[in-house]
Design a protein around this nucleic acid. Structure first.
Lengths: 137, 137
DNA sequence: CAATCCTGTAACTATAATAGTTACAACAGG
DNA sequence: CCTGTTGTAACTATTATAGTTACAGGATTG
């Protein structure tokens, strides 16, 4: 299991998308909903901001999405948080003198890339709006 | 990125499948090809053994596959090494008093499950024999 | 302008996962 | 009996993750 940053990012973006009262939307409030520390939230928001998904203003509460939820795919969010581009690590420097060791890295890369693409397709197919719809149910 | 155990497991199984001289196939030899410690290899082999993928005899070199490479899917190997059943962690105890916090876990589970299934399909579609064919090329 | 509340960020800490390592008991075979 | 092997437990080093403290600086209000 990778980590919970992707989950936290989606949670934060969902809150921003659904909270109308912007003065309420402080990092502390968000942290209360996510159940973490306000600094963790601000750190994550900094990353999402750099990726161009939202804006904020220093000293003033509230955040604004820069992309419509229906146009924001989960894959875009995943890329925004700079998640790993492969699922499985490949061990370093297998023995090149061995016929298996010599080719295993390239072979595994091929295998993992096909797995990765399948995952990307799924993330591409779902948007933040889909998540919001699920949350409202 | 999860870890390199899956890669190491596939490497080990490939070696066992392709090495005809069983007396050569010691944990030290395998470790030399993988570029790790013999104990790491024996530990992994213990896991694969428990899962019923191979046999070995204490004190005597060599291992035998119990499943034909063409019948051994990468998904079976993945399950054998007890890899995580989800790709992304979900943060603990979001605030149930918040409409987002209340439903985010279940929602994310749904999202991640669909991603997971796509990945499983890919791993199910490839066998150890496919890996061996790639290695031989 | 002073007080307060907020964001942004650096730096430190705690915890856990991962892999590597040492050590040794037990088995096999010459 | 000696050597080489497997099987495991226990310890260590390294790294990733998340949580925390601290504080500089912007915004708002009385």
């Amino acid at each position: 299991m990778v980590n919970s940053r992707f989950s936290v990012a989606i949670h934060i973006l969902s809150l921003i998308a659904t909270t109308s009262d912007k003065s309420q939307l402080t990092s502390e409030y968000i942290a209360g909903s996510v159940n973490t520390n306000p600094v963790v939230v601000r750190r994550m928001i900094g990353v999402l901001k750099k990726a161009g998904l939202l804006t904020s203003q220093s000293g003033i509460a509230g955040y604004d999405l820069l992309v419509e939820p229906k146009d924001l795919t989960l894959l875009a969010i995943y890329h925004a948080i700079d998640g790993p581009e492969q699922l499985f690590a490949i061990h370093d420097e297998p023995n090149p003198a061995c016929s298996v060791g010599q080719k295993i890295q390239r072979t595994l890369e091929g295998v993992y890339t096909s797995v990765w693409h399948a995952m990307e397709e799924q993330l591409q197919a779902q948007t933040l709006q889909d998540v919001l719809d699920q949350l409202r149910k």
